[in-house]
Amino acid sequence: MTAPLLSVRDLRVTFQTPTGVVRAVRGIDLDVAPGEILGVVGESGCGKSATFRALLGLSPASASVVGDVRWDGTPTDTSGGLQPHAAMIYQNPGAALNPVFTIGQQLALVAGTDDPVRLSELLDQVGLPDPPKALQAYPHEFSGGMRQRAVIAFALAQKPRLLIADEPTTALDVTTQAQILDLLASIREERNLTVVFVSHDLAVISRIADRVAVLYAGRVAEIGAVDDVLQRPTHPYAAALIRSTPSPAMVGEDLATIPGLVPDGRAEIFGCAFADRCDHVIDACRAETPPLRATSPTHAAACIRVEDGA
């Protein structure tokens, strides 16, 4: 792998809540290569959003964010260090747009220019039809797909090097999803952008991502090239997650489920966080937290059964 654009080591995000300390992220190691699309998957509460919100400085003031973060090789703030370089695309484009200002007024603020020609260009790049008219429109006059295109235009207006897309297609219908995925892929090509694509939908990830990181209980369980991870999962959790994803080839079959629940953020975890739900659990699993170990130059997993193959 070329020198990473973003490198995260042992990131820990902890929230103080009235019911106790919640460990949302429990030591994540992650590299993002320049120009790649990294998919980040996992169940709800596994720390997908918390990780990137922390890096963007969006954690609540009471949260503690520690770890080692490097941008382009240079150490940077753990909390918020990404902000000057990254832009965000939201899950619900309706909520990410201000309802009482026109698209043009909002875009002008983030683009730092009032020039209608320049603003129309930005809307044109994300495939919004009739940009001069779209600038005058209010968000509620747009469809969901058009709103998401507008949100992407806002993100591009900030001239980011890294685009963080937090479930950007989850709230859209399937045909619109496909259009937005194509748009993101083509924008990445044109601008040589780096994209982190957070999703719980493995089908979407397999379609758009180059590499994928599977998160479990605030740690990376498995990370590698999309084909490696999805075709030959090593970590029992990744394997179970893939088995529990419906596909057209499985019509009529029962869908596999993973017994049990993701450990609560308040719980102390000793050893492997997945041990209680794992079919292959042995005593050694509960003794120590398994580190990420490479199985090939492009593939690594955090499971005690993985032999160091690199």
Binding site: L56, L58, Q83, A87, M88, Y90, N92, A95, A96, L97, N98, P99, Q106, L109, V110, G112, V151, F154, A157, Q158
Partner: peptide
């Protein structure tokens, strides 16, 4: 979220 987005957008 649109307030957060505006702050992130500088």
């Amino acid at each position: 979220p649109f307030i957060e987005a505006a702050r992130l957008g500088g």
